[in-house]
Amino acid sequence: MSSGESLKLARWCRWMLAFVFIYHGLVPKLLFLSPVEVQMVDAAGLGLNAQVISPLAGVAEVLLGLLILFGWFGRWPVLAAAAGLVGLLGYVALFAPMLLIGAFNPVTSNLPPLLLCVLIYRLEKGAG
């Protein structure tokens, strides 16, 4: 694959990864606070207010999605996204494992974007 083709494919992967972060930050956290989001915050048992924490997390996800989309700071936001996806999956496994067996669960919503992170990193590294 030529370097131009690699960069084009990486750009498509970036757009999809950015969409995932922007959507998941905007819809279930900022526009319509999902009961599952509240459940995940409450599951930690730290007494945090999900009405505050979830929207803050939503803003962070939207910002990360924009960094990924526009390629600001190179591959660092992609690495941050990968770390976040792994961390959140571990968090759910530890604090709310029953969510792992439900429909549209964190396993199926975190692993495909994690693969996008790997693809972006490798495609951009190989083309650069």
Score class of each variant (00 low, 15 high):
residue 114 L to K: 00
residue 69 L to V: 14
residue 8 K to E: 15
residue 97 P to H: 00
residue 114 L to Q: 07
residue 12 W to K: 15
residue 45 G to A: 03
residue 53 I to L: 11
residue 57 A to M: 11
residue 101 I to H: 03
residue 126 G to W: 09
residue 89 L to M: 11
residue 124 E to F: 10
residue 64 L to H: 05
residue 123 L to P: 00
residue 84 G to A: 08
residue 92 V to L: 03
residue 82 A to D: 07
residue 109 S to K: 07
residue 125 K to W: 07
residue 61 E to W: 07
residue 38 V to D: 04
residue 117 C to K: 00
residue 93 A to C: 07
residue 111 L to E: 10
residue 85 L to Q: 01
residue 76 W to Q: 13
residue 83 A to W: 03
residue 8 K to A: 11
residue 103 A to R: 06
residue 34 S to W: 06
residue 80 A to H: 08
residue 55 P to G: 01
residue 102 G to R: 06
residue 60 A to S: 06
residue 122 R to V: 09
residue 80 A to I: 13
residue 15 W to N: 13
residue 27 V to W: 09
residue 65 G to W: 04
residue 127 A to Q: 06
residue 5 E to A: 09
residue 62 V to G: 12
residue 38 V to Q: 10
residue 39 Q to M: 14
residue 27 V to E: 15
residue 115 L to G: 09
residue 128 G to P: 14
residue 55 P to I: 02
residue 71 G to H: 00
residue 2 S to C: 03
residue 126 G to A: 11
residue 107 V to H: 02
residue 111 L to C: 09
residue 49 N to W: 06
residue 62 V to S: 08
residue 43 A to V: 01
residue 59 V to N: 12
residue 36 V to S: 06
residue 18 A to M: 08
residue 76 W to E: 10
residue 50 A to I: 15
residue 91 Y to S: 07
residue 21 F to E: 02
residue 93 A to T: 06
residue 27 V to H: 13
residue 61 E to S: 12
residue 10 A to L: 04
residue 70 F to Q: 09
residue 2 S to P: 07
residue 34 S to F: 02
residue 76 W to R: 14
residue 114 L to V: 07
residue 1 M to W: 13
residue 85 L to H: 00
residue 47 G to I: 08
residue 102 G to E: 13
residue 93 A to E: 06
residue 115 L to S: 08
residue 61 E to T: 07
residue 18 A to S: 14
residue 45 G to E: 04
residue 89 L to T: 07
residue 81 A to P: 01
residue 41 V to D: 00
residue 71 G to K: 01
residue 103 A to D: 05
residue 30 L to T: 07
residue 124 E to K: 10
residue 27 V to Y: 11
residue 14 R to S: 11
residue 40 M to D: 11
residue 18 A to E: 08
residue 55 P to D: 00
residue 16 M to I: 12
residue 102 G to M: 10
residue 112 P to R: 04
residue 80 A to F: 10
residue 91 Y to H: 09
residue 74 G to N: 11
residue 111 L to A: 08
residue 25 G to D: 06
residue 63 L to A: 15
residue 43 A to S: 03
residue 27 V to N: 10
residue 119 L to H: 00
residue 123 L to T: 01
residue 46 L to E: 02
residue 39 Q to T: 13
residue 22 I to W: 01
residue 4 G to R: 15
residue 9 L to K: 14
residue 29 K to G: 06
residue 26 L to E: 08
residue 45 G to N: 05
residue 54 S to P: 11
residue 72 W to S: 13
residue 36 V to T: 14
residue 67 L to Y: 09
residue 9 L to A: 13
residue 60 A to R: 03
residue 90 G to F: 04
residue 87 G to P: 05
residue 6 S to Q: 15
residue 76 W to I: 14
residue 53 I to V: 15
residue 42 D to F: 05
residue 109 S to P: 03
residue 10 A to T: 03
residue 44 A to M: 14
residue 114 L to I: 03
residue 48 L to F: 12
